[in-house]
């Protein structure tokens, strides 16, 4: 099967499986590969965590692995360290060939369920594949309740170039703004991820800017907390883990650069 045929198969399977949702996807074009990928993505985003056929998974995994690896992947070896063990890189976190990437999840932990939404939770789940939602569902079922803010959970990364995804729920900032608890919880998200990564003996990890997107945490303060938590952790534990701050927006790149390039 070529990529068109693979996507046609996957789309057909997903549309049949969730016939109630069909109507929402009527407006999607299906001409180019990119069109088809968007439809496939939307269908995966709204898909409930339920069992899926082995035949589907085989084609799905083959398609996603190639789709992900056909892009230029980025490894820490390709980048200069901005400080000892610390790296800064702007771009799509799903292109990173590191031990683990960090996902900014929500308390349901199931990944973004809004079709084709542009948040990081959506793109990580889409490119990792439908297995990721199933793995997260299992974690939540075992735990028996929603995922608290400031903790961390690890899963495989399935079809992504990374080996693992570490999921953390950052604090949500409403119109009342920051509070000491919310600042503490952001610190706690970073700290929990680092501890979990260490427990799994990971060598490299890439953080996204937790809580700064949909969760409205002010970018400057978030970066200060992120960098301080990581630096303190590395100093305190003498960990040899390499840590990347992955930014997406120009604004965050400028903020991280200005903090990390200050002479100590």
């Amino acid at each position: 099967m070529n990529q068109h045929e693979q996507l046609d198969y996957l789309i057909d399977y997903l549309l049949n499986e969730q016939s109630d949702n069909k109507i929402f996807f009527n407006d999607y074009k299906q001409e180019t590969l990119e069109d088809k990928f968007e439809l496939f993505r939307g269908l995966c985003n709204v898909r409930a965590p339920q069992p899926i056929s082995e035949d589907f998974l085989k084609i799905h995994d083959d398609f996603l692995t190639h789709w992900n690896q056909d892009r230029t992947l980025v490894s820490l070896e390709d980048l200069p360290a901005i400080q000892d063990q610390l790296y800064l890189w702007q771009g799509d976190i799903t292109r990173l060939n590191v031990d683990a990437i960090v996902n900014a999840a929500n308390s349901r932990l199931l990944g973004c369920t809004q079709a084709n939404h542009t948040c990081i939770d959506n793109i990580i789940h889409t490119r990792a594949g439908v297995e990721l939602r199933l793995a997260c569902e299992e974690i939540i079922q075992t735990q028996g309740r929603k995922e608290p803010v400031g903790k961390a959970k690890i899963t495989k990364a399935y079809n992504l170039p990374a080996n693992y995804v570490i999921h953390t729920v950052g604090p949500y900032i409403d119109q009342r703004g920051l509070s000491p608890l919310k600042e503490h919880l952001l610190h706690s998200s970073y700290r929990s991820v680092l501890e979990l990564a260490e427990e799994h003996q990971l060598k490299s990890i890439a953080f996204c800017c937790i809580s700064t997107g949909e969760f409205n945490f002010p970018n400057q303060r978030a970066a200060e907390i992120a960098i301080k938590t990581v630096q303190d952790y590395l100093t305190e534990t003498k960990s040899t883990m390499k840590v990347m701050f992955n930014v997406f927006k120009d604004k965050d790149l400028a903020i991280y650069q200005s903090i990390l390039e200050q002479k100590e």
């Binding site: 309740r145 929603k146 995922e147 608290p148 803010v149 949500y172």
Partner: peptide
């Protein structure tokens, strides 16, 4: 204690 509230889920 674990709690679920209108604005957050907290341990």
């Amino acid at each position: 204690l674990n709690l679920e509230a209108s604005k957050t889920v907290l341990e």
